[in-house]
Computed example of a mutant assay.
Amino acid sequence: MSDWYIAQVNIGRLIAPWPDPRVLPFFEALDRINTLAEQSPGFVWRLQDEAGNAMGISYAPDPLLAVNMSVWRDSDSLFDFVYRSAHTPEMARRREYFDRFDGAYQALWWIEAGTLPTINDALSRLWMLDRFGPSQHAFTFKARFPIPGIAGPPVDYKPDPWCVGRA
């Protein structure tokens, strides 16, 4: 078992408040998708309020901003849930429910096993990713950095062919 887990945050701005019919299907799918996450291999934790989801947690002046955070044993487990489960078709509908977001809307980072991320920690990761690009501090599925203490480029990093051999 690893001493590190992967944390993720994603944020979005709803096109309308609940219970507006334009976002109602999103809210109706929440319990099913949250249950799917909890039953997925590698799931550790997810942010939730008394209603069992994170939609009632206010973290910004804009009441239409929504935050989702979770922790997984490894990035492959998270990737499988996001892109290879019943979550995928729901996520594909995000443009129906959320405005296009300027800046980073998803970030991944490593946390020590047994710790939980805070919303402030997650927002700082988004800020770092937005301002400075992928790094060990905050990264994406396209540029997954290895567990802290392991040197090397991001896992999915593909060097620019123009730069190869031009040090």
Rank of each mutant, 00 (worst) to 15 (best):
residue 1 M to S: 00
residue 2 S to M: 01
residue 6 I to F: 11
residue 15 I to H: 15
residue 15 I to P: 12
residue 17 P to C: 08
residue 18 W to R: 05
residue 19 P to I: 00
residue 20 D to F: 02
residue 20 D to Y: 01
residue 24 L to N: 04
residue 24 L to F: 07
residue 26 F to V: 05
residue 29 A to Q: 13
residue 29 A to Y: 13
residue 30 L to T: 06
residue 38 E to A: 12
residue 39 Q to W: 04
residue 42 G to W: 05
residue 46 R to A: 08
residue 48 Q to S: 03
residue 49 D to Q: 02
residue 50 E to P: 05
residue 53 N to M: 07
residue 54 A to S: 10
residue 56 G to R: 10
residue 62 D to T: 09
residue 64 L to R: 14
residue 69 M to C: 10
residue 69 M to N: 08
residue 72 W to R: 05
residue 74 D to Y: 00
residue 82 V to T: 13
residue 83 Y to K: 15
residue 83 Y to D: 12
residue 84 R to Y: 14
residue 84 R to N: 12
residue 84 R to L: 12
residue 85 S to Q: 12
residue 86 A to D: 15
residue 87 H to Q: 14
residue 89 P to L: 13
residue 100 R to A: 08
residue 105 Y to S: 03
residue 105 Y to N: 00
residue 106 Q to M: 13
residue 106 Q to W: 09
residue 107 A to L: 02
residue 108 L to K: 06
residue 116 L to I: 07
residue 118 T to M: 05
residue 119 I to E: 04
residue 123 L to K: 07
residue 124 S to K: 13
residue 126 L to E: 10
residue 133 G to P: 02
residue 135 S to L: 09
residue 142 K to A: 15
residue 145 F to D: 01
residue 146 P to D: 06
residue 147 I to W: 00
residue 152 G to S: 03
residue 154 P to M: 05
residue 154 P to W: 02
residue 155 V to M: 04
residue 157 Y to H: 10
residue 158 K to S: 13
residue 160 D to E: 09
residue 160 D to I: 06
residue 164 V to G: 13
residue 164 V to E: 12
residue 164 V to A: 13
residue 166 R to M: 14
